[in-house]
Computed example of a mutant assay.
Amino acid sequence: MKDILVLRELEQIKAISHPYRVEVFECFESDQPQSAKQIAEKLGEPHAKVNYHIKSLLKVGILELVDERVKSGIIEKYYLPAAKALVIDKSFVQNADDDMVQTMNQASISFFEKISEDYYRAAENPLQYRKYINHLNEYYLTHDEVKDIMEKVDVYIHELIKDKKDKTRKDVHPYNIAILGIPIVKPKKRG
């Protein structure tokens, strides 16, 4: 499995822009192949629904079929992500038409919805998990300045967490770490 898969095709971005597919992708926590049945059990969803979305991710190369095993006369397929992280090709973003911009916005919304769901589930369990939020509001930056900040923070965070996939360490809990650089868009005045 690669560390990063650079998405260079519109179909790849459309596939991962579906919120449920983000959840399916994130169910692959380790380098262990998983079947649609295993993912369905994790998500508490019907096998057919999960299988449909796995096939969509498989078709565009975001997931890979890595094994087939016969169990009780049935072939069970096992998958892994093509990479640990997905990134949209920078040149693809710079040359985006309206359809591409809309697709990228939907992909961003899907990831944000997943982050929001995780946040609210944690908020409903205030004593079980600690939450850490750092919110810096209304700074005036250029696009390049925001991009530079995000790239530097990303490098720094990856350095800090690079060896933190071991679930067996004492007192560890799974955390999602999200860094957002969101432009402030003022609501339009009602006329």
Rank of each mutant, 00 (worst) to 15 (best):
Q128C: 09
T168F: 02
L86I: 06
L65F: 03
K59S: 15
P174K: 10
G73D: 10
N137H: 12
H53S: 07
I54N: 04
Y120C: 06
V66S: 14
H135D: 06
L58F: 07
S56A: 15
L86Y: 06
D67L: 09
T142G: 10
V70G: 03
K164D: 14
R121A: 07
I133N: 11
I133P: 01
E41G: 06
H143I: 00
K152C: 07
E117G: 06
R130K: 10
A36H: 00
K90W: 11
T142Q: 05
N95V: 05
D171C: 04
V153P: 01
E138L: 08
K167F: 14
V50T: 01
K84E: 12
F111C: 11
F92L: 13
Y156T: 03
D148K: 10
L80M: 15
Q38E: 09
D118Q: 09
H173K: 15
I39R: 04
V87W: 00
A82V: 04
I115W: 11
A83G: 08
E145R: 12
F112L: 07
S91A: 12
D154N: 11
F111A: 10
K71L: 14
I74V: 14
A122N: 02
E151P: 01
I109W: 05
D99N: 14
V153W: 00
K131V: 11
I62T: 05
Y132R: 10
D89A: 15
K131T: 08
S91M: 11
K59L: 09
L127Q: 04
L63R: 05
Y120T: 01
E45M: 14
S35C: 15
L43Q: 01
V153R: 00
H53P: 10
H53T: 11
F111T: 07
T142Y: 00
Q106G: 03
F92R: 13
K162L: 05
H158Q: 14
Y78L: 14
S116Q: 03
L58V: 06
Y120A: 02
I149R: 05
I54T: 08
Q128A: 15
I39W: 00
D154M: 08
H143P: 03
N134Y: 01
K90E: 15
I115V: 13
K114C: 06
I88T: 07
H143W: 07
R121I: 11
P174Y: 04
Y139I: 02
D99L: 14
A40M: 06
E138W: 07
D148R: 04
D99F: 11
V66K: 15
R121Y: 13
Y140P: 02
E151I: 03
S72D: 12
L43K: 08
E145M: 08
Y120N: 02
N137P: 01
E138I: 01
A122V: 04
L57C: 02
E145G: 06
T168M: 00
Q38Y: 02
H143T: 04
P81I: 13
N95F: 04
H53C: 08
D89R: 15
R169C: 06
D98Y: 07
E117M: 11
L127Y: 03
R169H: 08
A107Q: 03
A123F: 06
Q102T: 12
E145P: 02
